[in-house]
Design a protein around this nucleic acid. Structure first.
Lengths: 143, 143
DNA sequence: TTAGCAGACGACAATGATTGTCGATAAACT
DNA sequence: AGTTTATCGACAATCATTGTCGTCTGCTAA
């Protein structure tokens, strides 16, 4: 993910205003590998900026998505997660218990649909979800 | 998907009651390849049974899932979809415009995570989503 | 066949995630 | 510094889904 300064620049180019709220969110996302939910981002932002509203976080995250600076991913964990890693193609490993997400590197070049399966469709993207249980949750489930 | 009779049998075995509502849902799901949402199932069920409630459809669908007779899939289209095809391993091709879903056959045997990526995790399942636009939506978007 | 009960039914309200509205505010340009 | 106009945050609304609860009914045992 780009730095706070780069994103500030890109927002200005687009005619979007740069506010302390937005810069706080830029900072939180920079080099974050935790795939936070919007709610989680909001909580983190509030520790340094207690009045920031959830709406503002949603809005900024959607602006970032429109600019291609983050991806919003639906992993079946209830809420959308923000993935700041758009520079490197990757896929996801999801804990079906706690919802935590890890980036994984998988080569999907061999993963193409036979012609009969893609007839009538223009395929744009392939997304691979590995599902399982993380060790923490596995340990917790024994008790 | 099993027949209405088979599912009736399996529900009884489990100590679950078989009601006309449930049998109507069994019938709708049998050999359905449309991956309906729960809402859509409810609408279809109402044409033959006008008083059936949405809650009942949700409940029956969850019971079927618990028995492994259907899969509830989250494809980022807003609501859960019911997939009655659990007999044959398959993956999904999703239209990002209208949300329609098609089953596709892809061999994912080669798709394994390197040890470093699955450390600390017990991987149970792999799910592949192909995303694109169906011809109908592509034509509609030109207008 | 009937009685009794666990479980299902449907109406309604509640939840959680997300988005719309809108007056006040403040960033950016002049 | 003033003007413009997008953003902020409070609040209400929406959508998908689930909880509550009183009533009803399939199922089983007598």
């Amino acid at each position: 993910m780009k730095t706070v300064e780069d994103l500030t620049e890109r927002f200005r180019e687009r005619g979007l205003r740069v506010t302390p709220q937005r810069q706080a969110i830029f900072g939180l996302l920079h080099a974050d590998a935790s795939h936070p939910t919007v709610e989680t981002l909001h909580e983190r932002a509030r520790s340094s900026m207690p009045t920031i509203s959830l709406k503002t976080v949603y809005q900024t995250v959607h602006d970032l998505e429109a600019m291609g600076e983050v991806e919003l991913i639906h992993l079946g964990t209830g809420s959308v997660r923000v993935d700041p890693n758009v520079e490197h193609a990757h896929h996801h490993l999801i804990c079906t218990v706690c919802g935590n997400v890890r980036d994984v590197l998988v080569d999907v070049r061999d993963l193409r649909l036979p012609a009969r399966d893609r007839r009538g469709f223009t395929v744009a993207d392939v997304e691979v979800h590995f599902r399982g249980v993380c060790d923490d949750c596995a340990a917790r489930q024994l008790s």
